[in-house]
Design a protein around this nucleic acid. Structure first.
Length: 162
DNA sequence: TCACGGATTCGT
DNA sequence: CGAATCCGTGAT
C-alpha cells in the first residue's frame, strides 16, 4: 500500500460507492482529501499513540477509519501505508457534499464502519473505473490549529480544480 | 468513574 | 461568533 500523500492525490476524481440496506446506491466523486500521517504529526490522532480509537491506522492500508467529531459527525478516512506506520486520508468533500461532516452524513456512516475492509466490503468501497484525468491544488489542512504552525501549515490538503 | 475537548456545521 | 452534542482519552 502506498503512502498517504500519494493516495490522497490518487483518490481525487474516484468514486465512493455506498450501497444501502434498501438496495439503493450512492456514488460520490471525491473532490477534496487531506493527509494525516505518523505519530510525529501532531494533527494526527495517532500522535497520542496506539489506542482503541487509533488502532486501525496502524494496520496496513485498505481499511476504513471512521470516528465521531463534536459528538455529531462521523468522518470518513481511508487507512494507507504499511503496517505499523499510522496514516490515513480524510475525505473532506465530494461532488455531492461539501465538508467531511456532511459527506459522512449522506453516506450514513456510524461506528460499525470502523475497520471495514475496502477490498471486500459490499456496502462501501472505491471505484476508479470512471476516473478522468484531473488537475489539483495543494492547501494547508483545516481545523487543526492546536497542532502548531509546523503541522497546521503543511500542504497536506488536496482539491480538484474546477 | 469523571471531566475535558474536538480532523464540524449552522444559525445569529 | 457561539451553540449543538457525545465519545475517546487521560487523570482520579
Amino acid at each position: 500500500m502506498q503512502d498517504a500523500t500519494d493516495v490522497a492525490v490518487q483518490l481525487l476524481g474516484k468514486e465512493i460507492v455506498r450501497k444501502f440496506d434498501d438496495g439503493t446506491e450512492l456514488r460520490l466523486t471525491i473532490t477534496e482529501t487531506e493527509v494525516y500521517r505518523g505519530e510525529e504529526d501532531l494533527g494526527c490522532h495517532a500522535s497520542k499513540g496506539r489506542t482503541p480509537r487509533t488502532e486501525v491506522m496502524y494496520w496496513e492500508g485498505g481499511y476504513i477509519y471512521v470516528y465521531l467529531v463534536y459528538g455529531m459527525y462521523w468522518l470518513l478516512n481511508f487507512v494507507t501505508g504499511p503496517e505499523a506506520h499510522p496514516q490515513a486520508v480524510l475525505i473532506r468533500a465530494t461532488d455531492k457534499a461539501d465538508g467531511p461532516g456532511k459527506t459522512g452524513k449522506i453516506l450514513k456512516l456510524d461506528k460499525s464502519f470502523y475497520g471495514e475492509d475496502l477490498t471486500s466490503s459490499e456496502r462501501l468501497f472505491v471505484d476508479d473505473t470512471g476516473k478522468k484525468n484531473i488537475t489539483y491544488s495543494r492547501h494547508p489542512r483545516v481545523g487543526i490549529d492546536y497542532a502548531g504552525p509546523k503541522w497546521s501549515k503543511i500542504l497536506w490538503r488536496f482539491k480538484t480544480d474546477y
